[in-house]
Nucleic acid binder design. Structure first.
Lengths: 214, 214, 214, 214
DNA sequence: TATGAATGAGACTTCATTCAT
DNA sequence: CATGAATGAAGTCTCATTCAT
């Protein structure tokens, strides 16, 4: 599936609006107006509003498909390096695609799920968790990771923390008196803080050294 | 502001539907039908659909006002005990009000924010963070907590993890082969796991003992 | 099911327009405009355009339910009198409800049939044909009707002739130089001619007297 | 006016679809898809959807032009033989072109008539009736036909019966327990029945013998 | 000559809200 | 105080046709 310039334009505009106002809260008129195309183009190009968001998911998820694979299967890195790179990768992806991950979060929250989209999300998550399990086993085999790591909870903390940080960025700005920063500057700052925070968290929890049984 | 039985019925039904289908995705007809009242009642009682969700926020947030205060100001507990109680409290609140916190998450994600709701959310977060700062300072004064704790990030991890776990509960069930459990059983299981996981996380990160500089 | 004044108004207007332009050829806007109501009233009152035509069928067919029964079961008439009254009854009904029978004819011609409407039509036809079979058997028992009457073909001729006459009335007018007549006058004339014609046809075909085996 | 292969293909597909779903109920997309041509071909070849149906009428009516003439003017047949051949000819034509006559019936029922089509229909009917009048006069001159025949009513019965029989064929099948027959078999059966029925009807009505004054 | 992309009008329906009772 | 009928705006989608190629 490849899309022409106008289709991509529509998808990008839709992504932004869906993130801002939700799927149901965004009308095809909104999208058409913002993308500067005729209203009927959405149906014409994608079939329906529903199919448009499916196209969006298909594109964004295809894009992020291989990054994790190459990282995990890189033979030159030790497990803890991979964990740290993984953390930065997740931070980069989620902050770099705020709109899309916002939409994905909303869709995850919704129980009126579109089957195609749910499948996309489920597949992505399955793949991610499997890669992480593989990484954990590698670290355990090398004797540097603890044996009782619940990877699904660590993943939850990783994604949950980054997601929540992005969703609450305005609040974070305010609480830390960072309102003077512009968006780019602030994002760099936030990413640095998150990176440091999560790496520290993972190191304490995942490695064998100095762990306090609870 | 107190509401009569019918108004409360409407609010509770609306809460469930907003959580399931989103604010824009839920029509006043849906609410009226599910609450078994006339459609015009929503406008009649609350003024508008918008005002209805504001009423919902106002109620739910007023409800949760005092719990945290009493915990933090309890003189009989040591800081680490408070942290652990706090973690359980957050887990309980978020899992016990999944519908409402689902709505709050969605609204936080939305940049088309209703001013009244945004204010409610902001106030709640400010209050929470202040109480936590207070708790942290108490622990630091007692010499059991590290000096360089970024409480806003720890809070982000706490809420983010619990939120994400709730949002992804279907996935968690699947990945851990817990599909045989009924909802109540599963929720108990999940709460236990989250509690253990987050306490461990906080202990490693917050206390002075065994910390690995990063 | 009883309908209020506005609903009846809508149904009657719709009946006329469906007869004139067909179901697909008539928009809800056409109907709303002609009935002098808001467009959304059609959906509001009937659910959809489809349901509107179903309501129309349900009403018209309920109306014509009992006429035939009372005629056929009337003990004071001899079979041939019943046949003649039946012919006049069919002529009256079809000319008196031109619009509706026009719609029914179109729907019968359509293979994109609405299930509810098809059922209505099928039921009506089944009932009619059964009553006629009963009448024929009565006449045969009395020895005045032939034994080899194909009632389904006679019925086809009866309804077919009247239907076609109504559909071709403009042509009939022209061919018989009756264009000076107004509609009421012409209809009376046509009904008389049809009555005479069909009675003669049935007498020759149905009765035992003077029949020429073919 | 002659049409190329693609145009004929379009016309034939359109004929089938118009018969099935009506003119307004058939979109040019439906036609283009079923005929496996580009959507714009309809406008390109015929100017518009309207012009397409006109072309269809023009073709089908030109086709059937001469059959009746040769029959009526055949000097070797006696009037009653011509009547019978005429009946079979009508049955053959209407059953053989069900699609087209279905469309013609619908268009006749429509009061939103396309002028060109109405003219076509009117011309065909005028020609038919004139040929029949000629046949009747011939029979009357020979002393074998009654003097008071209303040919327009007899024609109405002929066309009306055959049309109605075709339109109600599903019902006829059901009522006579012929549902086991395939379409070709059933059609042969129906044509035989109609032929016998109408010939008997005409013989009783048209000829001087054994007529019962009404 | 033939095409497929593109269009604006209009299709049906649902929406939140109002108003007379 | 409560209701249900009614409304106009706006929703998504399909339509027949046009136009540049």
């Amino acid at each position: 599936m490849d899309y022409n310039a106008k289709q991509i334009q529509i998808i990008e505009v839709a992504e932004r609006l869906f993130a801002q106002k939700g799927f149901a809260g965004t009308s095809v008129r909104d999208i058409a107006q913002a993308a500067d195309v005729n209203v009927s183009m959405i149906s014409y190009y994608f079939g329906s509003k529903e199919k448009l968001i499916e196209a969006l998911f298909q594109i964004r998820m295809t894009e992020s498909r291989s990054r994790l694979e190459t990282l995990i299967t890189n033979a030159e890195l030790v497990p803890m390096q991979k964990i740290n790179l993984l953390i930065d990768s997740v931070i980069d992806r989620l902050t770099g695609n705020q709109c899309f991950h916002n939409i994905m979060m909303r869709e995850t929250l919704s129980s009126e799920r579109n089957a195609a989209i749910s499948d996309h999300i489920m597949n992505l998550k399955m793949r991610n968790i499997e890669l992480m399990q593989q990484l954990i086993r590698e670290g355990q085999a090398a004797g540097v990771f603890r044996d009782d790591i619940d990877m699904s909870l660590m993943t939850t903390t990783l994604y949950g923390t980054v997601n929540y940080a992005i969703a609450s960025q305005d609040f974070y700005k305010k609480i830390n008196n960072l309102e003077h920063m512009d968006q780019a500057e602030f994002l760099t700052h936030l990413k640095g803080k998150l990176s440091q925070h999560l790496k520290s968290l993972f190191k304490s929890t995942v490695t064998n050294e100095h762990h306090n049984q609870n």
